[in-house]
Design a protein around this nucleic acid. Structure first.
Ligand SMILES: [Zn+2]
Length: 558
DNA sequence: CGCCTTTGACCAGCGC
DNA sequence: GCGCTGGTCAAAGGCG
Protein backbone atom coordinates (compact mmCIF):
# COMPACT_ATOMS: atom_id res chain seq x y z
CA UNK A 1 0.00 0.00 0.00
CA UNK A 2 2.76 2.24 0.31
CA UNK A 3 2.88 1.94 -3.24
CA UNK A 4 2.81 5.06 -4.58
CA UNK A 5 -0.36 6.40 -4.38
CA UNK A 6 -0.13 8.59 -1.77
CA UNK A 7 1.07 11.77 -1.32
CA UNK A 8 -0.52 13.86 -3.72
CA UNK A 9 -2.98 15.40 -1.63
CA UNK A 10 -5.31 16.72 -3.89
CA UNK A 11 -5.01 20.16 -4.17
CA UNK A 12 -6.89 21.68 -6.77
CA UNK A 13 -9.87 22.25 -4.78
CA UNK A 14 -7.91 23.59 -2.02
CA UNK A 15 -5.94 25.81 -4.11
CA UNK A 16 -8.86 27.11 -5.86
CA UNK A 17 -10.63 27.79 -2.81
CA UNK A 18 -7.68 29.39 -1.46
CA UNK A 19 -7.48 31.79 -4.15
CA UNK A 20 -11.02 32.56 -4.31
CA UNK A 21 -10.96 33.31 -0.71
CA UNK A 22 -8.27 35.75 -0.75
CA UNK A 23 -9.72 38.87 -1.95
CA UNK A 24 -6.79 41.12 -2.20
CA UNK A 25 -3.15 40.58 -2.34
CA UNK A 26 -2.64 42.34 0.85
CA UNK A 27 -5.16 40.45 2.70
CA UNK A 28 -3.57 37.44 1.40
CA UNK A 29 -1.29 37.13 4.28
CA UNK A 30 -4.00 37.17 6.74
CA UNK A 31 -6.22 34.77 5.02
CA UNK A 32 -3.39 32.70 4.22
CA UNK A 33 -2.73 32.23 7.78
CA UNK A 34 -6.13 31.07 8.38
CA UNK A 35 -6.06 28.75 5.56
CA UNK A 36 -2.86 27.41 6.54
CA UNK A 37 -4.23 26.76 9.79
CA UNK A 38 -6.97 24.85 8.28
CA UNK A 39 -4.69 23.01 6.13
CA UNK A 40 -2.63 22.17 8.98
CA UNK A 41 -5.41 20.64 10.70
CA UNK A 42 -4.46 17.64 9.06
CA UNK A 43 -1.13 17.57 10.35
CA UNK A 44 -2.68 18.54 13.45
CA UNK A 45 -4.88 15.68 13.48
CA UNK A 46 -2.00 13.58 12.57
CA UNK A 47 0.14 14.80 15.23
CA UNK A 48 -2.67 14.58 17.53
CA UNK A 49 -3.30 11.01 16.87
CA UNK A 50 0.22 10.04 16.95
CA UNK A 51 1.14 12.35 19.66
CA UNK A 52 -1.49 11.07 21.76
CA UNK A 53 0.46 8.33 22.99
CA UNK A 54 3.45 10.24 23.82
CA UNK A 55 1.77 13.47 23.72
CA UNK A 56 -0.89 12.74 26.10
CA UNK A 57 1.31 13.59 28.85
CA UNK A 58 2.20 16.75 27.14
CA UNK A 59 -1.36 17.49 26.54
CA UNK A 60 -2.02 16.67 30.09
CA UNK A 61 -1.20 20.19 30.76
CA UNK A 62 -4.42 20.96 29.13
CA UNK A 63 -6.97 19.03 31.04
CA UNK A 64 -10.15 19.51 29.24
CA UNK A 65 -10.98 18.28 25.87
CA UNK A 66 -11.77 21.68 24.79
CA UNK A 67 -8.43 22.87 25.58
CA UNK A 68 -7.11 20.04 23.70
CA UNK A 69 -8.26 21.12 20.42
CA UNK A 70 -6.95 24.53 20.82
CA UNK A 71 -3.73 23.11 21.82
CA UNK A 72 -3.43 21.26 18.66
CA UNK A 73 -4.28 24.27 16.77
CA UNK A 74 -1.75 26.16 18.63
CA UNK A 75 0.82 23.66 17.79
CA UNK A 76 -0.02 23.92 14.26
CA UNK A 77 -0.05 27.46 14.49
CA UNK A 78 3.41 27.35 15.71
CA UNK A 79 4.28 25.21 12.83
CA UNK A 80 2.57 27.59 10.72
CA UNK A 81 4.49 30.33 12.11
CA UNK A 82 7.61 28.74 11.03
CA UNK A 83 5.89 28.22 7.81
CA UNK A 84 5.01 31.80 7.66
CA UNK A 85 8.53 32.68 8.11
CA UNK A 86 9.34 30.58 5.18
CA UNK A 87 6.77 32.43 3.34
CA UNK A 88 8.40 35.58 4.25
CA UNK A 89 11.55 34.32 2.86
CA UNK A 90 9.75 33.50 -0.24
CA UNK A 91 8.31 36.87 -0.35
CA UNK A 92 11.67 38.34 -0.04
CA UNK A 93 12.78 36.27 -2.85
CA UNK A 94 10.02 37.65 -4.87
CA UNK A 95 10.99 41.01 -3.77
CA UNK A 96 7.93 41.66 -1.82
CA UNK A 97 8.04 43.08 1.60
CA UNK A 98 8.09 40.51 4.26
CA UNK A 99 6.49 41.58 7.43
CA UNK A 100 6.91 39.64 10.55
CA UNK A 101 4.55 36.78 10.76
CA UNK A 102 2.40 38.31 13.38
CA UNK A 103 2.67 41.67 11.94
CA UNK A 104 1.78 40.14 8.77
CA UNK A 105 -1.60 39.38 9.92
CA UNK A 106 -2.29 42.80 11.11
CA UNK A 107 -0.87 44.29 8.10
CA UNK A 108 -2.98 42.22 6.00
CA UNK A 109 -6.04 43.40 7.72
CA UNK A 110 -5.09 46.96 7.44
CA UNK A 111 -4.30 46.59 3.89
CA UNK A 112 -7.50 44.92 3.33
CA UNK A 113 -9.28 47.78 4.78
CA UNK A 114 -7.27 50.08 2.70
CA UNK A 115 -8.10 48.13 -0.32
CA UNK A 116 -11.73 48.34 0.32
CA UNK A 117 -11.42 52.00 0.87
CA UNK A 118 -9.68 52.35 -2.32
CA UNK A 119 -12.31 50.71 -4.23
CA UNK A 120 -14.80 53.08 -2.86
CA UNK A 121 -12.55 55.97 -3.39
CA UNK A 122 -11.71 54.98 -6.83
CA UNK A 123 -14.70 56.55 -8.29
CA UNK A 124 -13.29 59.92 -7.64
CA UNK A 125 -9.83 59.23 -8.93
CA UNK A 126 -8.86 60.04 -12.46
CA UNK A 127 -9.11 57.10 -14.80
CA UNK A 128 -5.42 56.99 -15.60
CA UNK A 129 -4.41 56.66 -12.09
CA UNK A 130 -7.10 54.23 -11.53
CA UNK A 131 -6.02 52.11 -14.34
CA UNK A 132 -2.49 52.24 -13.27
CA UNK A 133 -3.43 51.30 -9.84
CA UNK A 134 -5.62 48.58 -11.01
CA UNK A 135 -2.87 47.21 -13.12
CA UNK A 136 -0.47 47.35 -10.29
CA UNK A 137 -2.88 45.64 -8.11
CA UNK A 138 -3.47 43.11 -10.70
CA UNK A 139 0.15 42.40 -11.02
CA UNK A 140 0.48 42.21 -7.35
CA UNK A 141 -2.40 39.91 -7.15
CA UNK A 142 -0.93 37.71 -9.72
CA UNK A 143 2.32 37.61 -7.92
CA UNK A 144 0.50 36.92 -4.79
CA UNK A 145 -1.35 34.16 -6.41
CA UNK A 146 1.76 32.61 -7.64
CA UNK A 147 3.28 32.85 -4.31
CA UNK A 148 0.22 31.42 -2.72
CA UNK A 149 0.36 28.62 -5.14
CA UNK A 150 3.88 27.91 -4.26
CA UNK A 151 2.98 28.00 -0.66
CA UNK A 152 0.21 25.64 -1.18
CA UNK A 153 2.47 23.35 -2.91
CA UNK A 154 4.87 23.56 -0.09
CA UNK A 155 2.21 22.92 2.40
CA UNK A 156 1.03 19.99 0.49
CA UNK A 157 4.45 18.63 0.32
CA UNK A 158 4.87 19.09 3.97
CA UNK A 159 1.69 17.38 4.60
CA UNK A 160 2.63 14.54 2.45
CA UNK A 161 5.84 14.31 4.27
CA UNK A 162 4.21 14.25 7.56
CA UNK A 163 1.86 11.61 6.46
CA UNK A 164 4.58 9.57 4.99
CA UNK A 165 6.67 9.82 8.02
CA UNK A 166 3.84 8.88 10.14
CA UNK A 167 3.04 5.92 8.06
CA UNK A 168 6.59 4.89 7.84
CA UNK A 169 7.00 5.08 11.54
CA UNK A 170 3.98 3.07 12.17
CA UNK A 171 4.94 0.50 9.70
CA UNK A 172 8.33 0.35 11.12
CA UNK A 173 7.01 -0.07 14.54
CA UNK A 174 4.71 -2.77 13.55
CA UNK A 175 7.33 -4.56 11.64
CA UNK A 176 9.67 -4.34 14.55
CA UNK A 177 7.10 -5.72 16.82
CA UNK A 178 6.37 -8.46 14.51
CA UNK A 179 9.97 -9.25 14.10
CA UNK A 180 10.33 -9.56 17.74
CA UNK A 181 7.42 -11.74 17.87
CA UNK A 182 8.70 -13.77 15.06
CA UNK A 183 11.89 -14.34 16.83
CA UNK A 184 10.05 -15.75 19.66
CA UNK A 185 7.88 -17.71 17.43
CA UNK A 186 10.67 -19.01 15.37
CA UNK A 187 11.98 -20.99 18.16
CA UNK A 188 8.68 -22.42 18.62
CA UNK A 189 8.10 -23.24 15.09
CA UNK A 190 5.37 -25.00 13.44
CA UNK A 191 5.39 -27.95 15.64
CA UNK A 192 5.13 -25.66 18.41
CA UNK A 193 2.22 -24.19 16.77
CA UNK A 194 0.51 -27.43 16.63
CA UNK A 195 1.20 -28.06 20.18
CA UNK A 196 -0.04 -24.74 21.02
CA UNK A 197 -3.08 -25.38 19.12
CA UNK A 198 -3.76 -28.41 21.06
CA UNK A 199 -2.97 -26.79 24.25
CA UNK A 200 -4.78 -23.78 23.23
CA UNK A 201 -8.06 -25.36 23.66
CA UNK A 202 -7.24 -25.71 27.20
CA UNK A 203 -5.90 -22.37 27.63
CA UNK A 204 -8.28 -20.40 25.76
CA UNK A 205 -8.41 -18.34 28.76
CA UNK A 206 -5.19 -16.84 27.91
CA UNK A 207 -5.56 -14.18 25.47
CA UNK A 208 -2.40 -14.16 23.78
CA UNK A 209 -1.61 -17.62 23.06
CA UNK A 210 -4.09 -18.14 20.37
CA UNK A 211 -2.71 -15.29 18.52
CA UNK A 212 0.64 -16.67 18.71
CA UNK A 213 -0.46 -19.67 17.08
CA UNK A 214 -2.16 -17.89 14.46
CA UNK A 215 0.38 -15.46 13.66
CA UNK A 216 3.06 -16.12 11.42
CA UNK A 217 5.24 -13.68 10.09
CA UNK A 218 3.28 -10.93 8.94
CA UNK A 219 6.26 -9.24 7.83
CA UNK A 220 5.94 -5.70 7.23
CA UNK A 221 2.78 -4.10 7.49
CA UNK A 222 -0.25 -5.87 7.37
CA UNK A 223 -0.99 -5.05 3.94
CA UNK A 224 1.69 -6.16 1.77
CA UNK A 225 2.14 -9.62 2.88
CA UNK A 226 -1.39 -10.24 2.92
CA UNK A 227 -2.08 -9.18 -0.45
CA UNK A 228 0.64 -11.07 -1.90
CA UNK A 229 -0.09 -14.25 -0.29
CA UNK A 230 -3.70 -14.13 -0.70
CA UNK A 231 -3.61 -13.59 -4.23
CA UNK A 232 -5.54 -14.82 -6.92
CA UNK A 233 -4.71 -18.34 -7.10
CA UNK A 234 -5.88 -19.23 -3.77
CA UNK A 235 -8.39 -16.66 -3.79
CA UNK A 236 -10.08 -17.74 -6.77
CA UNK A 237 -13.04 -19.33 -6.02
CA UNK A 238 -11.48 -22.54 -5.78
CA UNK A 239 -14.52 -23.82 -4.54
CA UNK A 240 -13.43 -25.62 -1.72
CA UNK A 241 -10.26 -26.52 -2.98
CA UNK A 242 -7.74 -24.50 -1.36
CA UNK A 243 -7.38 -25.44 2.07
CA UNK A 244 -5.70 -22.75 3.79
CA UNK A 245 -5.08 -24.75 6.58
CA UNK A 246 -3.73 -23.14 9.28
CA UNK A 247 -3.78 -23.22 12.66
CA UNK A 248 -7.02 -22.31 13.27
CA UNK A 249 -8.31 -25.10 14.97
CA UNK A 250 -11.44 -24.56 16.58
CA UNK A 251 -12.51 -21.74 14.85
CA UNK A 252 -14.94 -23.52 13.15
CA UNK A 253 -17.87 -22.07 14.44
CA UNK A 254 -17.98 -19.09 16.25
CA UNK A 255 -21.24 -19.17 17.49
CA UNK A 256 -22.22 -15.73 17.15
CA UNK A 257 -24.06 -15.28 14.01
CA UNK A 258 -21.71 -12.75 12.93
CA UNK A 259 -18.53 -14.15 13.69
CA UNK A 260 -18.96 -16.89 11.39
CA UNK A 261 -15.88 -17.94 9.86
CA UNK A 262 -15.30 -16.68 6.49
CA UNK A 263 -14.69 -18.55 3.48
CA UNK A 264 -11.51 -20.28 3.46
CA UNK A 265 -11.23 -19.70 7.03
CA UNK A 266 -14.10 -21.72 7.89
CA UNK A 267 -12.74 -24.32 5.71
CA UNK A 268 -9.55 -24.34 7.41
CA UNK A 269 -9.13 -27.64 8.82
CA UNK A 270 -8.22 -27.45 12.22
CA UNK A 271 -4.86 -28.38 12.81
CA UNK A 272 -3.30 -29.74 10.05
CA UNK A 273 0.05 -30.01 10.65
CA UNK A 274 1.90 -29.54 7.66
CA UNK A 275 0.95 -26.31 6.38
CA UNK A 276 3.65 -23.96 5.64
CA UNK A 277 3.94 -20.92 7.59
CA UNK A 278 3.02 -18.85 4.71
CA UNK A 279 -0.29 -20.40 4.52
CA UNK A 280 -0.87 -19.88 8.08
CA UNK A 281 0.07 -16.33 7.69
CA UNK A 282 -2.19 -16.04 4.87
CA UNK A 283 -4.92 -17.59 6.74
CA UNK A 284 -4.22 -15.42 9.63
CA UNK A 285 -4.36 -12.40 7.62
CA UNK A 286 -7.48 -13.54 6.12
CA UNK A 287 -8.84 -14.15 9.43
CA UNK A 288 -8.22 -10.72 10.47
CA UNK A 289 -11.38 -8.95 9.77
CA UNK A 290 -12.72 -5.60 10.33
CA UNK A 291 -16.32 -5.24 11.01
CA UNK A 292 -18.06 -1.99 11.14
CA UNK A 293 -21.24 -1.54 13.00
CA UNK A 294 -23.12 1.46 11.94
CA UNK A 295 -26.62 2.67 11.90
CA UNK A 296 -27.73 2.91 8.40
CA UNK A 297 -30.83 2.52 6.45
CA UNK A 298 -28.83 1.88 3.41
CA UNK A 299 -28.22 -1.68 2.53
CA UNK A 300 -24.60 -1.13 2.43
CA UNK A 301 -22.13 1.38 3.57
CA UNK A 302 -20.09 3.08 1.02
CA UNK A 303 -16.53 2.32 1.55
CA UNK A 304 -14.87 3.33 -1.61
CA UNK A 305 -14.62 -0.02 -3.21
CA UNK A 306 -16.58 -1.73 -5.85
CA UNK A 307 -18.29 -4.80 -4.70
CA UNK A 308 -20.11 -7.53 -6.35
CA UNK A 309 -22.59 -9.57 -4.56
CA UNK A 310 -21.97 -13.21 -4.92
CA UNK A 311 -24.26 -14.71 -2.45
CA UNK A 312 -26.83 -14.27 0.17
CA UNK A 313 -27.76 -16.49 2.97
CA UNK A 314 -30.03 -16.52 5.85
CA UNK A 315 -27.97 -16.56 8.91
CA UNK A 316 -29.14 -18.74 11.59
CA UNK A 317 -29.79 -16.45 14.41
CA UNK A 318 -30.75 -13.55 12.35
CA UNK A 319 -33.91 -12.91 10.45
CA UNK A 320 -32.01 -10.70 8.14
CA UNK A 321 -30.07 -12.32 5.40
CA UNK A 322 -26.40 -11.95 5.15
CA UNK A 323 -25.02 -10.77 1.89
CA UNK A 324 -21.63 -11.68 0.56
CA UNK A 325 -19.66 -9.34 -1.56
CA UNK A 326 -16.35 -9.49 -3.21
CA UNK A 327 -14.21 -6.71 -4.40
CA UNK A 328 -14.37 -6.19 -8.09
CA UNK A 329 -11.94 -3.39 -8.43
CA UNK A 330 -9.37 -5.85 -9.54
CA UNK A 331 -9.72 -9.26 -10.94
CA UNK A 332 -8.01 -11.23 -8.37
CA UNK A 333 -8.76 -9.12 -5.42
CA UNK A 334 -9.31 -11.41 -2.49
CA UNK A 335 -11.16 -8.96 -0.40
CA UNK A 336 -14.61 -9.96 0.62
CA UNK A 337 -17.13 -8.54 2.83
CA UNK A 338 -20.27 -9.58 4.51
CA UNK A 339 -23.10 -7.29 5.14
CA UNK A 340 -25.77 -8.02 7.60
CA UNK A 341 -28.14 -6.23 9.78
CA UNK A 342 -28.03 -6.70 13.44
CA UNK A 343 -30.74 -8.96 14.61
CA UNK A 344 -31.31 -6.93 17.68
CA UNK A 345 -31.42 -3.66 16.00
CA UNK A 346 -32.07 -3.70 12.35
CA UNK A 347 -30.97 -0.22 11.93
CA UNK A 348 -27.51 -1.35 12.63
CA UNK A 349 -25.66 -2.49 9.65
CA UNK A 350 -22.76 -4.74 10.19
CA UNK A 351 -20.19 -4.87 7.53
CA UNK A 352 -17.31 -7.21 7.87
CA UNK A 353 -14.28 -6.94 5.68
CA UNK A 354 -11.74 -9.57 5.14
CA UNK A 355 -8.49 -9.58 3.27
CA UNK A 356 -6.43 -6.97 1.66
CA UNK A 357 -6.77 -5.54 -1.73
CA UNK A 358 -4.17 -6.44 -4.24
CA UNK A 359 -4.63 -3.33 -6.22
CA UNK A 360 -4.51 0.36 -5.77
CA UNK A 361 -7.45 1.81 -4.05
CA UNK A 362 -9.06 5.13 -3.83
CA UNK A 363 -8.26 6.78 -0.58
CA UNK A 364 -11.59 6.05 0.75
CA UNK A 365 -11.24 2.44 0.09
CA UNK A 366 -7.77 2.45 1.33
CA UNK A 367 -8.97 3.37 4.65
CA UNK A 368 -10.81 0.17 4.89
CA UNK A 369 -8.03 -1.80 3.45
CA UNK A 370 -5.54 -0.32 5.75
CA UNK A 371 -7.84 -0.91 8.61
CA UNK A 372 -8.05 -4.51 7.80
CA UNK A 373 -4.37 -4.72 7.42
CA UNK A 374 -3.89 -2.95 10.65
CA UNK A 375 -6.28 -5.26 12.31
CA UNK A 376 -4.44 -8.21 10.99
CA UNK A 377 -1.16 -6.92 12.10
CA UNK A 378 -2.64 -5.96 15.35
CA UNK A 379 -3.82 -9.38 15.93
CA UNK A 380 -0.57 -10.77 14.94
CA UNK A 381 1.35 -8.46 17.04
CA UNK A 382 -1.09 -8.95 19.76
CA UNK A 383 0.05 -12.43 19.99
CA UNK A 384 2.97 -11.32 21.91
CA UNK A 385 2.42 -11.91 25.47
CA UNK A 386 5.22 -9.71 26.32
CA UNK A 387 4.97 -6.16 27.15
CA UNK A 388 5.98 -5.42 23.69
CA UNK A 389 2.99 -7.11 22.45
CA UNK A 390 0.84 -4.97 24.54
CA UNK A 391 2.50 -1.94 23.43
CA UNK A 392 2.11 -2.96 19.96
CA UNK A 393 -1.50 -3.45 20.39
CA UNK A 394 -1.83 -0.15 21.86
CA UNK A 395 -0.13 1.35 18.98
CA UNK A 396 -2.26 -0.37 16.58
CA UNK A 397 -5.31 0.42 18.43
CA UNK A 398 -4.27 3.95 18.40
CA UNK A 399 -3.58 3.88 14.81
CA UNK A 400 -6.79 2.27 14.12
CA UNK A 401 -8.85 4.10 16.49
CA UNK A 402 -7.62 7.47 16.91
CA UNK A 403 -11.11 8.51 17.43
CA UNK A 404 -12.04 6.84 20.51
CA UNK A 405 -9.29 5.04 21.98
CA UNK A 406 -11.13 4.39 25.07
CA UNK A 407 -13.32 2.00 23.32
CA UNK A 408 -10.72 -0.11 21.79
CA UNK A 409 -11.17 -3.64 22.69
CA UNK A 410 -9.13 -6.34 21.31
CA UNK A 411 -9.58 -9.84 22.15
CA UNK A 412 -7.02 -12.04 20.86
CA UNK A 413 -8.74 -15.13 21.77
CA UNK A 414 -11.05 -15.67 19.00
CA UNK A 415 -9.74 -17.66 16.23
CA UNK A 416 -10.99 -15.24 13.82
CA UNK A 417 -9.84 -12.02 14.94
CA UNK A 418 -12.20 -9.33 14.17
CA UNK A 419 -11.80 -5.74 14.82
CA UNK A 420 -15.10 -4.17 15.28
CA UNK A 421 -15.67 -0.55 14.83
CA UNK A 422 -18.78 0.27 16.56
CA UNK A 423 -20.21 3.41 15.20
CA UNK A 424 -23.59 2.89 16.54
CA UNK A 425 -23.18 4.62 19.78
CA UNK A 426 -24.71 7.87 20.47
CA UNK A 427 -24.50 9.90 17.41
CA UNK A 428 -22.32 12.55 18.49
CA UNK A 429 -20.52 12.54 21.52
CA UNK A 430 -17.91 14.28 19.68
CA UNK A 431 -20.02 16.93 18.23
CA UNK A 432 -17.98 19.59 16.84
CA UNK A 433 -17.44 22.51 18.90
CA UNK A 434 -17.76 24.70 16.00
CA UNK A 435 -21.19 24.78 14.62
CA UNK A 436 -21.39 22.24 12.00
CA UNK A 437 -21.96 23.75 8.73
CA UNK A 438 -25.15 23.23 7.04
CA UNK A 439 -23.94 20.37 5.14
CA UNK A 440 -26.59 18.81 3.18
CA UNK A 441 -26.22 15.30 3.94
CA UNK A 442 -29.56 14.10 4.46
CA UNK A 443 -29.11 10.56 3.73
CA UNK A 444 -29.26 8.62 6.76
CA UNK A 445 -27.01 6.35 5.08
CA UNK A 446 -23.87 5.47 6.41
CA UNK A 447 -21.65 7.06 4.13
CA UNK A 448 -18.71 9.05 4.37
CA UNK A 449 -19.26 12.61 3.86
CA UNK A 450 -16.39 13.63 1.87
CA UNK A 451 -17.45 15.24 -1.25
CA UNK A 452 -14.27 15.39 -2.96
CA UNK A 453 -12.21 12.48 -3.18
CA UNK A 454 -8.81 12.79 -2.09
CA UNK A 455 -6.72 11.36 -4.65
CA UNK A 456 -3.93 9.66 -3.14
CA UNK A 457 -3.01 9.28 0.31
CA UNK A 458 -0.22 7.78 1.92
CA UNK A 459 -1.52 4.85 3.49
CA UNK A 460 -1.58 4.54 7.11
CA UNK A 461 -3.22 2.25 9.37
CA UNK A 462 -6.50 3.56 9.93
CA UNK A 463 -9.98 2.87 10.05
CA UNK A 464 -12.44 4.16 7.85
CA UNK A 465 -13.68 7.36 8.97
CA UNK A 466 -17.27 7.39 9.00
CA UNK A 467 -17.59 10.58 10.42
CA UNK A 468 -20.98 11.32 9.65
CA UNK A 469 -22.30 11.90 12.92
CA UNK A 470 -21.71 8.52 13.80
CA UNK A 471 -18.43 7.81 14.87
CA UNK A 472 -18.49 8.27 18.40
CA UNK A 473 -17.38 5.19 19.85
CA UNK A 474 -15.29 2.84 18.15
CA UNK A 475 -15.02 -0.42 19.56
CA UNK A 476 -12.64 -3.03 18.78
CA UNK A 477 -14.11 -6.11 19.84
CA UNK A 478 -12.72 -9.02 18.44
CA UNK A 479 -13.57 -12.11 19.89
CA UNK A 480 -16.12 -13.93 18.25
CA UNK A 481 -17.35 -11.48 16.07
CA UNK A 482 -20.04 -9.55 17.42
CA UNK A 483 -20.89 -10.66 20.74
CA UNK A 484 -23.71 -8.32 20.78
CA UNK A 485 -25.13 -9.56 17.68
CA UNK A 486 -26.17 -12.95 17.37
CA UNK A 487 -26.19 -14.94 20.26
CA UNK A 488 -23.63 -13.94 22.43
CA UNK A 489 -22.21 -16.63 24.09
CA UNK A 490 -19.92 -14.84 25.90
CA UNK A 491 -16.77 -16.12 25.14
CA UNK A 492 -14.68 -17.75 27.55
CA UNK A 493 -11.83 -16.26 25.83
CA UNK A 494 -10.25 -13.36 27.30
CA UNK A 495 -10.26 -10.05 25.77
CA UNK A 496 -7.63 -7.52 25.79
CA UNK A 497 -8.80 -4.16 26.44
CA UNK A 498 -6.82 -1.41 25.12
CA UNK A 499 -7.43 1.73 26.79
CA UNK A 500 -5.84 4.77 25.76
CA UNK A 501 -5.18 7.36 28.19
CA UNK A 502 -5.69 10.28 26.15
CA UNK A 503 -8.92 9.56 24.67
CA UNK A 504 -10.29 12.98 24.60
CA UNK A 505 -7.63 14.38 22.54
CA UNK A 506 -8.22 12.05 19.77
CA UNK A 507 -11.84 12.56 19.68
CA UNK A 508 -11.32 16.18 19.70
CA UNK A 509 -8.86 16.03 17.01
CA UNK A 510 -11.10 14.07 14.88
CA UNK A 511 -14.01 16.21 15.56
CA UNK A 512 -11.97 19.21 14.79
CA UNK A 513 -10.91 17.74 11.56
CA UNK A 514 -14.42 16.83 10.78
CA UNK A 515 -15.56 20.24 11.60
CA UNK A 516 -12.97 21.65 9.37
CA UNK A 517 -14.11 19.48 6.62
CA UNK A 518 -17.62 20.32 7.00
CA UNK A 519 -16.88 23.92 7.18
CA UNK A 520 -14.86 24.21 4.15
CA UNK A 521 -15.69 21.90 1.46
CA UNK A 522 -12.72 22.90 -0.45
CA UNK A 523 -10.54 21.45 2.14
CA UNK A 524 -12.49 18.40 2.28
CA UNK A 525 -10.38 16.55 -0.06
CA UNK A 526 -7.21 17.42 1.61
CA UNK A 527 -8.58 16.87 5.02
CA UNK A 528 -10.21 13.75 3.97
CA UNK A 529 -6.98 12.55 2.68
CA UNK A 530 -5.21 13.34 5.83
CA UNK A 531 -7.87 11.99 7.98
CA UNK A 532 -8.19 9.02 5.88
CA UNK A 533 -4.62 8.32 6.20
CA UNK A 534 -4.91 8.52 9.85
CA UNK A 535 -8.20 7.30 10.66
CA UNK A 536 -9.27 5.65 7.65
CA UNK A 537 -10.85 6.56 4.55
CA UNK A 538 -14.03 7.87 4.14
CA UNK A 539 -16.13 7.67 1.30
CA UNK A 540 -16.43 10.22 -1.16
CA UNK A 541 -19.70 10.01 -2.67
CA UNK A 542 -20.06 9.24 -6.15
CA UNK A 543 -17.76 7.06 -7.86
CA UNK A 544 -17.12 3.56 -7.31
CA UNK A 545 -19.61 2.28 -5.09
CA UNK A 546 -22.48 3.82 -6.49
CA UNK A 547 -23.81 0.59 -7.40
CA UNK A 548 -23.60 -0.57 -3.95
CA UNK A 549 -25.09 2.05 -2.00
CA UNK A 550 -28.48 2.60 -2.82
CA UNK A 551 -29.15 0.24 -5.50
CA UNK A 552 -28.90 -2.74 -3.54
CA UNK A 553 -31.38 -1.63 -1.25
CA UNK A 554 -33.77 -3.95 -2.65
CA UNK A 555 -31.65 -6.89 -2.60
CA UNK A 556 -31.33 -8.70 0.43
CA UNK A 557 -32.56 -6.89 3.22
CA UNK A 558 -35.10 -8.68 5.07
C1' DC B 1 -22.61 -5.74 -24.23
C1' DG B 2 -20.80 -5.68 -19.84
C1' DC B 3 -21.67 -5.61 -15.18
C1' DC B 4 -24.44 -6.67 -11.50
C1' DT B 5 -28.01 -8.97 -8.64
C1' DT B 6 -30.78 -12.87 -7.70
C1' DT B 7 -31.19 -17.35 -6.26
C1' DG B 8 -31.01 -22.24 -6.06
C1' DA B 9 -27.51 -25.58 -5.82
C1' DC B 10 -23.23 -27.32 -4.29
C1' DC B 11 -19.51 -28.11 -1.06
C1' DA B 12 -17.20 -28.64 3.32
C1' DG B 13 -17.04 -28.58 8.29
C1' DC B 14 -19.22 -29.76 12.45
C1' DG B 15 -22.27 -31.92 15.83
C1' DC B 16 -25.07 -35.67 16.89
C1' DG C 1 -23.88 -41.24 8.16
C1' DC C 2 -27.14 -37.56 8.46
C1' DG C 3 -28.57 -33.06 9.00
C1' DC C 4 -27.38 -28.37 9.82
C1' DT C 5 -24.93 -24.37 8.69
C1' DG C 6 -21.92 -21.16 6.41
C1' DG C 7 -19.75 -19.95 2.30
C1' DT C 8 -19.43 -20.06 -2.59
C1' DC C 9 -20.67 -20.98 -7.40
C1' DA C 10 -22.94 -20.05 -11.49
C1' DA C 11 -27.04 -19.74 -14.48
C1' DA C 12 -30.57 -16.54 -15.36
C1' DG C 13 -32.21 -12.21 -15.68
C1' DG C 14 -32.07 -7.04 -15.18
C1' DC C 15 -30.08 -2.65 -15.97
C1' DG C 16 -27.63 1.16 -18.19
ZN1 LIG D 1 -10.03 -5.01 -3.95
Amino acid sequence: MDKGWGLTLESDPVTNNFFSTKTSSNTGAFFRLNHQRDMFQFPVSLTGSRDDRRGTSASSSSPSDDTRLPVDEVDFFSDKKSRVIDDDCVKKEHGEPAPASDLDVNTGLLLLTAGSDQSTVDDGVPSDREDRRAKDELVQLQVELKRANAENQKLKDMLSHVNNNYTALQMHLVSLMQQQRNRETETTQEQHEVQEVKSEENKQGEEIMPLKIIDVRPSGGAEAPEMVSTHSSSEERTRSGTPQNNVEKRIGREESTESESWGPNSKLPKLNSGKPIDQSVEATMRKARVSVRARSEAPMITDGCQWRKYGQKMAKGNPCPRAYYRCTMAVGCPVRKQVQRCADDRTILITTYEGNHNHPLPPAAMAMASTTAAAASMLLSGSMPSADGIMNQNLLARAILPCSPSMATISASAPLSTVTLDLTHSPNPLQFRSPPPPQPQPPPQFQVPFPGQPQNLPQVFGQPLYNQSKFSGLQLSQEMGFSQLGQQHQVPYPQLQLQQPQQPSLADTVSAATAAITNDPSFTAALAAAITSIIGGARPNSSSNTSNNNNNTSNNRQ
